[in-house]
Simulated assay, not measured.
Amino acid sequence: MTSADELPIRRLTLADLSACLDLSDDRSWGREEHKWRLLLSAGQGYGIDAPPDDPVGGLLAAVVRTSYGGQWHAIGMMLVASRRERQGIGLRLMRHMIAEAEGAPLLLTATGNGRPLYERLGFKALGGITTLTGAFGGAPDAGTGLRPATAADMPEILAYDRPVFGADRTELLTRLASFADRILVARAPDGRLTGFGATWPNVTTTSVGPVLADDPSIGRALIGRLATDTATPARLDVGDEHPELLAWARTHGLAPVGRTTLMVLGAPEAPGDPTRRFAPYSMAHG
Rank of each mutant, 00 (worst) to 15 (best):
P8I: 09
R10M: 04
R11N: 14
L12E: 01
T13G: 15
L14R: 13
A15P: 01
A15V: 06
D16I: 00
D16Y: 00
D16F: 00
D16K: 00
L17D: 00
L17E: 00
S18T: 14
A19R: 14
L21A: 07
L21V: 07
L21I: 07
D22Q: 15
S24C: 03
S24F: 01
D26Q: 08
D26Y: 06
R27L: 14
R27E: 13
R27I: 15
R27T: 15
R27N: 15
W29R: 10
W29M: 09
G30A: 05
R31Q: 09
R31P: 04
R31K: 08
E32W: 05
H34M: 07
W36S: 07
W36K: 08
W36N: 07
R37K: 13
L38V: 08
L39W: 03
L40P: 02
S41F: 06
A42Y: 03
G45C: 10
Y46T: 10
I48W: 10
I48Y: 10
I48C: 13
D49Q: 09
D49L: 09
A50Y: 01
P51D: 05
P52M: 08
P52D: 13
D53N: 06
D53H: 02
D53T: 05
D54K: 13
P55G: 05
V56Y: 07
G57I: 05
G57T: 06
L59D: 11
L59Q: 09
A61Y: 02
A61F: 04
A61G: 05
A62D: 09
A62Q: 15
V63I: 15
V63P: 02
V63W: 07
V63F: 07
V63M: 15
V64F: 02
R65V: 11
R65I: 11
R65F: 05
T66H: 06
T66R: 09
S67F: 06
S67D: 15
Y68F: 15
Y68Q: 07
G69R: 12
W72G: 08
W72R: 09
H73N: 14
H73D: 12
H73E: 06
A74N: 11
G76S: 04
M77T: 08
M77P: 03
M77N: 10
M78N: 11
R84K: 04
E85L: 03
E85R: 13
E85V: 10
R86C: 03
Q87R: 05
G88T: 11
I89M: 00
I89Q: 00
I89C: 00
G90N: 05
G90E: 06
L91T: 14
R92V: 04
M94R: 08
M94Q: 13
M94V: 11
R95Y: 10
M97P: 02
I98M: 15
I98E: 07
I98Q: 14
A99I: 08
A99F: 09
A99Y: 10
E100K: 14
A101C: 13
A101N: 12
G103W: 03
A104Y: 02
P105N: 06
L107A: 13
